[in-house]
Amino acid sequence: MLKFIKHHLDTIDGVEIFPVLSFLIFFSVFLFALIYVVKADKSHMDEMSNLPLDNKN
């Protein structure tokens, strides 16, 4: 009976690649963002973070 809820995806070729692919895509975007953030210059960061305070209301 277990076969009814398991092994659905067995017939899809190379299905094991999906979790690996997901992780790689996520990790690379995360890495890109991290590298940017570390390298970003301080004055730009300050300028950006002050945008909401740039008006009285």
Binding site: V29, F30, A33, Y36, M45, S49, P52, L53
Partner: peptide, 24 residues
């Protein structure tokens, strides 16, 4: 930031926050 009258704690963190969150 508006109500507190000061900028967000870390703008760098907010960038990571955004991309990581929508991605995950």
């Amino acid at each position: 930031p508006k109500a507190a009258g000061r900028p967000v704690f870390s703008y760098r963190l907010s960038i990571i926050h955004f991309w990581a969150l929508i991605f995950i």
